[in-house]
Design a protein around this nucleic acid. Sequence first.
DNA 1: AATATCTTCAACCGCTTATTC
DNA 2: GGAATAAGCGGTTGAAGATAT
Length: 352
Amino acid sequence: MGKGRAPCCDKDKVKRGPWSPQEDLRLITFIQKHGHENWRALPKQARLLRCGKSCRLRWINYLRPDVKRGNFSKEEEETIIRLHETLGNKWSKIASHLAGRTDNEIKNVWNTHLKKRLAPKNGKIPQNDQSKETCMVSSSCSSITFVSSPCGKRNLEVELEQQWHEGSPSKKPREGFPVSDKAEDFKTEVPSHNSGPFEEPKEFPSSSISSSNSNITNSSQVNVPNPENHGDSLLNFIGVYDWENNTSEEVNKPEILNNAFDIPLESDSDFWDMLDSLGSFQPDEIQSNEVEGNQSPDFGEEYSKENENNKWLQYLEIELGLEVTKNENHNNLSNTAAEPLVPEMYDMLLKP
DNA sequence: AATATCTTCAACCGCTTATTC
DNA sequence: GGAATAAGCGGTTGAAGATAT
């Protein structure tokens, strides 16, 4: 066999399959602190036994704070249908027009619901793959019409972008949602409470590179909540969790992470050790010696380790009900956690 | 109640594109 | 300009849950 493409990671050495809450926590904490400038290096730095690709996917699809979960609204579905007519299976493009929805999710919804739903109407499977080639569409969208040719896809997309921006309000994406792919559009003022331990990572330079995917931005926008979107259950790691918008439909998303809590963003392995030793769970076979010597990215010591540990422990105590009303200063924190953190979460955390 | 079948969706795979050297 | 590397994207898979028999 030829050389072929080098595998992105050693499959024998990485964990696969569903993510555990511990892994999620690790990933979130790491990204919150350091951003995700280098997905490939991230697993090692975060001491995750995962492929960088897997980390990226997990972050994009589930862990980033602006991911919206739950059923799609009728509006959203219609939007997907419309966009699919014009864009075809360009899921990431479609996703960029839907607040908090990921390409993967949209793709799933299309394949499981919308395609079937439309099939009877048209008497055929909706122009799924064809559309991306032909782009020949009579859009159901009254205010957006596209004349396109197979070669005009680029223009079509540009036009679509423009119409989203300039078009009639009724066709605009969800209010407050940045339709642009540019990271700058998505970046928002960091809330005041985002000072201190949660300042934008300084260790990594903010990347000027923006992702075209689902409003994903690079390390600079880890704290992405758009103030205008708070009512849309866009979550803020640091901010106050909107429990009202917490839907029971959310699956496999570690609600603990949606809560407003201050993870002591460690600059060394102590935190992870503490995390790992929480309860008795095993950190998914993550061997500390796996990255021994370099597990602590040299990101500098910003905060006293002691403070970090105290904060973290305090948080855990509260959340675990070990210290329920000890400190009223925790109201802010506790309010957001007035609802107990998802019990299953702790079960999982604390049980082997 | 047990089993089979269907549905859903999180995660993976591998190709393409972008970036860096 | 070309090779190497990393990120992005879309298709596919398979486990788990739901539903039917």
